Simulated assay, not measured.
Amino acid sequence: MASQRSAGSARWDSFVALGDSFTEGLDDPRPDGAFRGWADRLAEHLAADNPNLSYANLAVRGKLIRQIVDDQVPQAVELKPGLVSFTAGGNDIIRPGSDPDTVAQLFESAVAELRAAGIDVLIGTGFDTTETPVLRHVRGKVGTYNSHLRSIADRYGCYVLDLWSMRVLRDSRAWSGDRLHLSADGHRRVALRACEALGVETGEDWREPWPDAAETSWRTQRAEDIKWAREYLAPWIGRRLRGVSSGDGRGPKRPQLEKLTAAK
Rank of each mutant, 00 (worst) to 15 (best):
A197C: 07
G37C: 06
L114W: 10
T129L: 13
L135R: 02
D27T: 09
A262W: 11
R173Y: 01
W206R: 05
L42E: 04
W228L: 11
V121Q: 10
Q75K: 09
L26A: 09
A7P: 14
P235K: 13
Y232A: 04
E258W: 01
K63N: 14
G249I: 06
W228P: 00
P133G: 13
L149A: 08
D185E: 11
A110I: 02
A153Y: 01
H45L: 12
V244D: 02
R230N: 09
G90K: 09
D101M: 08
G37A: 02
P81F: 05
K141Q: 13
D32Y: 07
S172I: 08
T202Y: 04
A110Q: 02
V111D: 09
G186W: 03
R30K: 12
R170L: 08
V16A: 06
E215F: 02
P252C: 01
S85A: 13
D248F: 03
E224N: 15
T144I: 13
G177A: 14
W236V: 06
G157S: 09
Y159P: 04
P100G: 06
R193F: 03
I94D: 02
G8P: 03
E113R: 15
P133C: 11
R30I: 05
I237M: 15
P255G: 11
C158H: 00
L26C: 13
G19N: 12
R150I: 04
P74G: 11
H181K: 04
L106W: 09
W236C: 07
V134F: 14
G97E: 04
A112T: 07
L58R: 06
D171A: 12
L182R: 15
G157R: 00
S85F: 01
L53V: 12
G8C: 01
D32P: 00
F35M: 14
H137F: 05
G247E: 01
S217F: 08
Q4G: 12
V103K: 02
G243K: 04
L79Q: 15
A174N: 03
G25M: 06
L58Y: 08
E44Q: 07
V69P: 05
R219M: 08
V73E: 03
L257T: 07
D99S: 09
G177M: 12
P209H: 13
P252H: 00
R173T: 01
P252M: 00
D185G: 03
S151I: 03
T87G: 15
T220H: 11
T132P: 00
A116Q: 15
P252S: 05
W12P: 06
R240V: 12
V111C: 04
K63T: 06
G243H: 07
P29H: 08
L114I: 09
L18Y: 03
L18S: 01
E196N: 02
T23H: 05
D92E: 07
D248W: 06
R230C: 03
E131F: 08
Q67T: 14
R179D: 00
W206G: 00
S9A: 13
I152W: 04
R173G: 05
V142C: 10
D205G: 11
F86T: 08
T132M: 15
F15L: 02
S98L: 00
K253M: 03
E44A: 01
A88W: 07
F107S: 01
K80L: 08
W218Q: 12
E215L: 11
A43K: 07
A104Y: 09
